[in-house]
Design a protein around this nucleic acid. Structure first.
Lengths: 142, 142
DNA sequence: CTCTTTATGGATATCATGTATCCAGAATAT
DNA sequence: ATATTCTGGATACATGATATCCATAAAGAG
């Protein structure tokens, strides 16, 4: 139940690019400024490209730019590009049927949790994150 | 960002016990009815005991019963007994300071997600889960 | 007291997955 | 042509979730 480092990398890369949406930003540049391992970043960017979140240009002075307006990129988009479909419980077989042949008392709760999470992720756009001044590394745990 | 099997085991064990709160239920019994590896279940029960969620009795006819009323056991209690303090982002050093010396645009969102999640987990008690008829293994992913 | 049942505690193994690295190749600007 | 940068695949590494084993202690039954 944790945000993966990979997703964090992705969001950081996108906010970095989003600050200068016109300019092309190379992986090398992003990697250095955001302290993300270059080769690993490559994997991440690939997924963002495939999902149509960023555009890539090869060659000298190549790099990445956003493909959509920051207001049109939701955190949900980013999440799903990186992690795939959101599914906080994984208790079903291929047919979506619970292995236990009994009623499952937990599902309703997890469902609620997931729905509320998806809602927040969906409402939050890259634009919002960019304008959020962002409290300097501090968060309540509770 | 997934509910672990271990937490699932814990909840299933507790709902199982909760159905007959008076009776003592041995690990063997729980293990068999809920299809949970016996030795692994031992570890799980230990944590629930330590957190005061269940009471254990050793010896023949020993086993576990709830230590509190189902209405006084929240899913948050269970979650924290199993996984420890809830913290969906883990982006700080030991002093709670973000490694990056820049403002972090993501924290506010994850904070909101976590808060909403904690709220739901807190509001949901074992009693509720027990009375929830529980849709037979099926959930919307969205 | 002895025997059986059951939980406890620690050590360790297994496995999955997140994270990271390496490299050869294709695209493209100068 | 050459240097730059992304692409794609293969593979290694690290961590933590999951599982197994066993020796011990507690406690009820005879």
């Amino acid at each position: 139940m944790q945000v993966t480092k990979t997703l964090d990398y992705a969001v950081r890369s996108l906010t970095y690019i989003g600050h200068e949406p016109i300019v092309k930003h190379s992986m090398k540049e992003i990697s250095e400024h955001q302290h993300i391992p270059l080769n690993y970043l490559a994997k991440i960017m690939r997924r963002l490209v495939k999902k149509g979140i960023v555009r890539s240009m090869v060659g000298p002075y190549g790099g990445y730019t956003l493909r959509k307006a920051p207001g049109d990129i939701s955190l949900r988009d980013i999440y799903e590009a990186i992690e795939g479909e959101i599914r906080i419980v994984d208790c079903m077989d291929g047919n979506g049927i619970c292995q236990l042949h009994e009623a499952c008392p937990q599902l309703p709760v997890w469902d609620r949790v997931q729905l509320s999470m998806v809602k927040i992720l969906e409402e939050t756009t890259l634009e919002q994150m960019l304008s959020d001044r962002g409290i300097r590394g501090f968060t309540r745990v509770n």
